[in-house]
Simulated assay, not measured.
Amino acid sequence: MSANEYIQRLFGAEDEVLQAVRQSIIDREMPTISVSPEVGTYLTMLVKMSGAQSVLEIGALGGYSGICLARGMSEDGKLTSLELEVEYAQLAHQNLIGAGFGGRVIYRVGEALVSLQQLEAEGEKFDLFFIDADKGNYVNYFEWALKLANPGALILADNVLWGGRVYDQENQEESTQMLRAFNEKIASDDRVESMLLPIGDGLSVSRVK
């Protein structure tokens, strides 16, 4: 048994709601790339511990991470979710409605970088960010998160270990190099305090100073 398998066995239990979300994604033949169960558990914990009331998610897919984030918020909390694909956003919204969070989430469909510009123009600010979208734009999403962050906000990013490829120096695929650059950036950027956690496929946590 690997360390990941051990952690998932102890801390990655899925209830019927989250199991149904995974199945809805499979049924529609969408990519089965939702966050791992233990990462979902940790997302809920981080929202609760930070007291985040305004959360921005970049990458909705079928709503799995959205539910985990919403579960950590109080009844006054708001989740804004950016999603490129209309079909994904529709399924995510359907699943959040089914989980009882339909009234707390707003979806913006289209290129995330465009939506982020619009949010800045509207004066929006957020307490917590979760990045789980196209890997080539992780650094760009991070910079936008800094622009839209309230003091002390958390910026989270999934898949930062990339199946171990980021620390395999023989792997020079573009996506791998992009994620290496992101990891190196958050490790050295003096605007944040950061750590990379080896749960799921790697989760980074940065706190805005």
Rank of each mutant, 00 (worst) to 15 (best):
A52V: 04
E29C: 09
P151Y: 08
Y88R: 15
G40T: 10
L82N: 10
F129M: 03
V21M: 02
R180G: 00
A89D: 04
V21K: 11
N150Y: 10
G202F: 12
V17I: 12
A52P: 10
E57H: 04
Q169Y: 13
L203H: 11
M49V: 00
T176L: 06
I106S: 14
E111R: 10
L197D: 06
Y6N: 03
R108S: 07
P151A: 08
G59T: 05
G163C: 08
D132F: 06
K209D: 01
I67N: 02
V139H: 10
E14S: 07
E75Q: 15
N95H: 14
R108F: 05
L179A: 03
Y88F: 14
V192G: 08
L128C: 02
V114A: 07
T32Q: 15
H93G: 02
I155L: 07
R180H: 13
D168K: 08
L116P: 08
V55T: 10
E120L: 09
Y167V: 15
Q8C: 00
S36K: 12
S2K: 15
Y42H: 05
R28S: 09
G51L: 00
Q19T: 13
Y64L: 10
N171Q: 13
F130E: 12
G51I: 06
G72S: 03
Q23A: 13
M49N: 11
M30A: 03
A157L: 05
G98K: 15
Y138I: 11
R108Q: 14
Y6Q: 04
D127M: 07
E85T: 08
A149F: 07
E83K: 10
P31V: 06
D132I: 05
S2G: 13
S115V: 00
T80E: 05
L179Y: 01
Y64E: 01
P198C: 10
K78I: 10
I26K: 15
L203A: 09
N140I: 01
N159I: 05
Y107C: 06
M178C: 08
R71E: 02
